[in-house]
Computed example of a mutant assay.
Amino acid sequence: MNIAAHPVVASLTPVFLLIGLGYLAGRMHWIRDEAVKDLSNLVFLLLIPALLFRTMSSVHFEELDWRPVGAYFLAALTLLAVSIVWRGFNRGSVVMALAGTFSNMVMLGITLVELAYGKAGLVTLLTVVSVHALIMLTLGSIVLELAVAREARLGGERTPHVLETAWSAFKGALIHPIPLPIISGLLFAQTGLELPSVIDKPLQLLGSAFGPIALVLVGVTLALTPMRGYLRQALWVSASKNVFLPVMVGLSAWALGITGLPLTVLVVAAALPVGANVFLFAQRYEVAEQVTTAAMGLSTALALVTLSFAMTFMSWLN
């Protein structure tokens, strides 16, 4: 058998090559640190919304299977709760638990799943992505605010009501460049209309640019990520994200009767490395910033092995 023609190899190779080129660009300082933020804004505010809206603009509600969403979050939220209890309830433990359960579904997952499993696999992934940020970011914000409130009460300070915090977190996660274009695209699809070519073509070109730019940006970020001194803690977070979560998601999906391509996409999504949004939490709450950064880098590097294994195992299983 020609190894290069194997579907797992064929889909993973361009992904890791582009990440490798981005890593080289970062190490050689071809892209300045200040430019990384601008590129991130370009990807998140323009390229991703174009891709997500166009993909979902032809998907009808009756074609969607919401069981994968239930299976994924049953496992993810269970692991999140166990991780917080294991480390103790404080800001640092919540941030590290989020890092161990928050997948890089957008920057890495969308391109990888589309390459490996086509539009059918992408629809399953985007069904999860549509509520991934909403659920994880909202819940993360609430739990972190509860941790802050607990610390403040112990210090004798006054804190906002938890419902005020929950509403603020919900609005912030809903009005976001990920769920908003997915929901908008789905609503447009229900009208039965088709995008005019004069609009569809630019969206297609913008969406096509997303994959390579996002993957190169992952590599640049990896090159600029310091890991020295935090490897042990980062290794635990990476094990949770790259190994424990996909195993738990796979078992949860199997228990709910999910098989075939949806099961594969769920496991692969869970096996993706730590998503960048976790660092925003660490930065905002001024806790575990170095560990989170190290975990993102180590998790991405280890994904070369763990993600390859997950995809190969699922292709064998199916």
Rank of each mutant, 00 (worst) to 15 (best):
A4K: 06
P7G: 10
P7A: 11
P7L: 10
A10I: 03
L12T: 02
L12F: 00
F16T: 06
L17W: 09
L18H: 04
G20I: 12
G22R: 08
A25D: 14
R27F: 14
M28W: 13
I31D: 01
E34M: 08
E34S: 14
A35F: 14
K37L: 15
D38W: 09
L39P: 15
L39M: 11
V43I: 03
V43Q: 09
L52I: 06
H60W: 12
H60S: 12
W66I: 08
R67N: 09
P68N: 04
G70K: 03
L74P: 00
L74W: 06
A76H: 00
L79A: 07
L80R: 01
S83I: 06
V85N: 05
F89C: 00
R91H: 09
G92I: 00
G92D: 11
M96S: 06
A97I: 01
A99V: 03
T101A: 09
F102H: 12
S103M: 15
S103D: 10
T111R: 15
L112H: 11
E114K: 06
A116V: 00
G121A: 04
L126Q: 09
T127D: 02
V128W: 02
V129S: 02
V129R: 03
L134C: 05
M136K: 00
L137N: 04
L137C: 07
T138R: 08
T138A: 06
T138K: 09
S141L: 01
V143S: 08
A147P: 11
A149S: 12
R150N: 11
E151C: 00
A152W: 04
R153P: 00
G155L: 14
G156I: 11
H161C: 05
A166V: 02
W167K: 13
W167F: 08
F170Q: 07
G172Q: 12
L174D: 08
I175G: 14
L180G: 12
L180Q: 11
I182A: 05
S184M: 15
G185C: 13
L186N: 01
F188S: 08
P202L: 05
P202K: 07
L203R: 04
L206Y: 08
G207T: 04
A209G: 15
F210Y: 14
P212L: 01
P212S: 04
I213S: 04
I213V: 02
V216A: 15
A223K: 04
L224C: 12
R228L: 12
R228F: 10
R228P: 02
Y230V: 11
Q233F: 12
A234E: 03
V243C: 14
F244M: 15
A253W: 02
L256M: 15
V267H: 13
L272W: 01
V274L: 07
V278G: 04
A282F: 03
A282C: 07
A282D: 01
A282I: 03
Y285F: 09
V287K: 08
V287Q: 13
A288P: 01
Q290I: 07
T292D: 03
T293P: 04
A294C: 09
M296Q: 13
M296Y: 06
M296G: 05
L298W: 08
S299L: 11
A301V: 03
A301C: 05
L304A: 06
L307T: 02
